[in-house]
Amino acid sequence: MPHILAAGDLFVTPSLFIDAVKARTSAAADVSFGELTLPWPIEPFGPVGSVDEASGDVPSLIEAMAGAEIVVTQMAPFTAEVFESAPGLRLISICRGGPVNVDLEAATRAGVIVTYAPGRNAVAAAEFAVGLMLTAMRRIVIADSELKNGAWRGDYYSYENAGSELDGATVGLIGYGAIGRIVARVLNAFGSNVLTYDPYADAETVKDDGVELVELSELLRRSSVVSLHARLTPETHHLLNAENLSLLPRGTVLVNSARGGLLDYAPLPALLASGQLGALALDVYDIEPPPADWPLFDAPNVVLSPHLAGATKQTAERAANIVADDIALYLRGERPRYVANPAVWNVLSAGSRS
C-alpha cells in the first residue's frame, strides 16, 4: 500500500492535498496518508540547507516521511540529506511553478521523480499585477491612508497631480509566460498598447495576442508603465538596474510582483525623489520582509504589499489539483505530466517494462 505524506502549510493545507488525491484516483482507497503542517506563510520562507524558498526544517521532514513513497508539498525542504534518509521515496510533487525547494541533482541521483505545477497561480498573479498598476496610477492606497488620517486631498484633482489611465497607455511587460500573457489579455481589454520583452517568447504567439515583441531597451524607452513577470535566474538577476532604469520616460510607473531579485532596489529612492519614477508598486523585495530602516518605506508614491500576488483560494485549490493529477498518473503506472527530471522517469519506466 503506497504511503503519501501531505506536507502542507497554512495556504495549501494537508487536507487540500489529501482530498484532491482521493478525488482523482480509484487507487486512493488503497493509499495511506500522513500529514505535516509547515509554518509558512506565518513564518517567511527562505533558504533551508542547500535549497531556497523553503519552510520548516530537515529533521522534522525526515521524521514525518517515515515509510512514504510519495510526498506532496509546496515548501518542504528537500535537501540531499532528506534523500539520503528516505530510500523508499519515489515521487515528490511540488505544487509550485518550479521545484525551487528541491535539490534536483540529489533527487535524480536518488532515483526520485520530481513534479511541479506550472500555471497554478497565473490568474491570481496577473489580476494582482493589474491591480497594482491601477492602485499606483490612481493613488488609491495612498489617498485611502491620507483620508483615514484626516486629509482630504482635493489637490489630486489638479491637472499636475491627476492620475493616468490604462486606456491608451503603453505598458511594457518584462516576461511573457503564463502570467504575462494573462496580464496582456487584460490590458488589451483596457485599451492599452502592450509591449513585451522575453527572449524565449514565440514571436508569432506574441503577435497573435496583439502584443509587440521588442528588446528590453526599447520597452523601457517607450513604456509609461512597466511590469515584471520574468522568472528569477542567474541571467535575470537585477535585470532592471540603475543603468537601464535611466531609460524610462519621466513619470513611469514601475510594478514588481514577480521576484525581488529581478530588480535592483538601490537606485529606486532617488528615482522616485527626482520624479523619474512617477510611482512604484511592489509585492516582492530583495529582502523579505524588508528591514525596518528600508529607505522605500519613506519614499514618495510607493505602494507595498507583503508578497500576496498568488494568495487566492483558487490558487491553493488549483495547486493541489495539478499535483494530485500527476500523483494519480503515477499510481496508475503512467508518466506524470510535469516532470522536472524526466531521466528518472525514463529509467523507472524502462525497468518496469523489462
Rank of each mutant, 00 (worst) to 15 (best):
A328L: 10
R153Y: 07
W345A: 09
T25W: 02
V253K: 03
R96T: 08
A76P: 07
L262E: 03
E53F: 14
N121D: 12
Y116A: 02
A106F: 06
L219N: 01
P87R: 04
L263P: 01
G275P: 03
R181W: 08
Y200G: 05
E69A: 12
D202P: 04
V112G: 03
P87E: 07
Q74G: 13
V183A: 05
A311R: 14
V112D: 03
L219M: 08
N244H: 11
V186R: 03
A319Y: 13
P118F: 13
V186L: 09
W294K: 14
A6L: 08
E63W: 13
G8K: 12
W40L: 11
L104P: 00
N341P: 11
N101S: 05
E243M: 14
S217T: 13
L263V: 11
V323N: 04
D298E: 14
A340R: 04
A162G: 06
L38F: 09
Y200W: 15
P267V: 08
R24M: 02
P59R: 12
T73F: 15
P295V: 09
A107F: 02
D325C: 01
R185E: 06
L10W: 04
H238F: 08
N188K: 15
G261N: 05
L219K: 00
G278I: 07
S60Y: 13
H229Y: 07
G46T: 04
K148G: 01
A23T: 00
M75D: 05
A201E: 02
H3G: 01
S224L: 08
L254H: 02
A64E: 10
S50A: 15
V303K: 05
V58F: 15
S158T: 13
S305W: 10
P300T: 00
W152G: 10
A316Y: 07
A169T: 01
Q74W: 06
R139D: 12
H238S: 07
A80T: 12
C95K: 00
G261R: 10
L232Q: 07
A66R: 15
Y200V: 08
D52Y: 10
L213M: 12
E81K: 11
S192M: 00
E204V: 06
D155V: 12
T135A: 12
T115I: 11
V48W: 05
V303A: 15
A189C: 07
A54Q: 06
L132C: 09
A23Y: 12
K22W: 08
L10M: 09
L232G: 06
L254G: 00
V12R: 03
L245E: 06
P14C: 10
A169Q: 07
I92A: 05
A178L: 14
A126K: 00
L268D: 09
L247G: 03
L282E: 07
S305C: 11
L232D: 06
I94E: 06
N161A: 14
S227R: 06
S223H: 04
E63H: 15
H237E: 01
A136H: 07
E235D: 15
E53L: 15
